[in-house]
Design a protein around this nucleic acid. Structure first.
Lengths: 152, 152
DNA sequence: CATAAAGTCTACTAGTACTATAGACTTTAT
DNA sequence: ATAAAGTCTATAGTACTAGTAGACTTTATG
């Protein structure tokens, strides 16, 4: 049940890119070096991560002098779940309850398998949080993250 | 965010041991071979897992002819969370929100770190399910697993 | 147009964790 | 005495993680 460093760094970088820029204009553009310095991440490792995120369509980039990365969509439309899945794969703890990478666990009756039912609940609980938290949610107010009332 | 095979097999084995025995008397005793056959698990691998669980105080065993493993406590008093932690370690996706293996993530302000807050919610959501689901909950009724109303 | 600043892309590597497998040993019932 | 069971430790192959390295492309600008 863990978030890999790749996933952690990717999420941190995306959050940094979602932070409202010091100057007025919205889609902040940051360079790899700037992010790696701020977040204390190996810039070569971060480079790979940002490239992956770019190829997944979540980031745009500008090459050359004065270049950098910026979000492909508004921060309110990018969820942590999307980012997580690109970098760390399925949210589900076990394949047989995965929405994006289902695979049978080989147990005789999947429908009534107790372990599967519980792990399905775990998957849903995680996905509920990650898919309902956008980058904007993270940056604007760190306390009222959850949208659904009652799940705090 | 995944359950290792070790964790999966351990949970399956504990659930099998929690199943009300065909004959009347309660604490079912099963042999490694029997469980490994039923659940299609390498018996040598399962052996290690059960031993770990035994050394953690969750199982008792009887050596020699007619021996086997049985639950150390009633199925209603053993939670999936306890089993998971023995076999797979902390529930938290990231160290800085772990209750059992806390470690600073090194970010300047942990208290207001957005990522940390979200991951804390994830940790709590997972722990809520795993710590409130006992082996008895899994075996008696596979549908109404959750105790807390509203979190389904 | 030369240069430097930026991203792009691919390959490689050390370490660690996962998933077992092997085999010698101990205990116990019969 | 024997066979059925658990105990314990070591080892090994594989995959994944977390980086490192270096050559390449694009772009602004002096």
């Amino acid at each position: 049940m863990r978030l890999s460093k790749r996933g952690e760094y990717g999420l941190r970088a995306m959050i940094a890119l979602a932070e409202p820029s010091s100057r007025s204009d919205s889609p902040a553009m940051l360079q790899i070096k700037e992010i790696s310095r701020r977040e204390q991440i190996s810039s070569k490792f971060l480079e790979q991560i940002l490239l992956t995120l770019k190829n997944a369509g979540m980031l745009h980039s500008k090459m050359g002098v004065g270049g950098g990365y910026y979000l492909a969509r508004p921060a309110s439309e990018i969820t942590l779940g999307q980012i997580f899945r690109v970098l760390d794969g399925a949210v589900a703890p076990i394949k047989c309850v995965s929405q994006m990478a289902y695979e049978s666990c080989g147990c005789p009756e999947e429908e009534t398998c107790g372990l599967r039912l519980v792990m399905g609940d775990v998957r849903n609980a995680i996905a509920d949080i990650l898919d309902n938290t956008s980058l904007a949610d993270v940056t604007t107010r760190q306390g009222t993250l959850r949208k659904k009332p009652g799940i705090n």
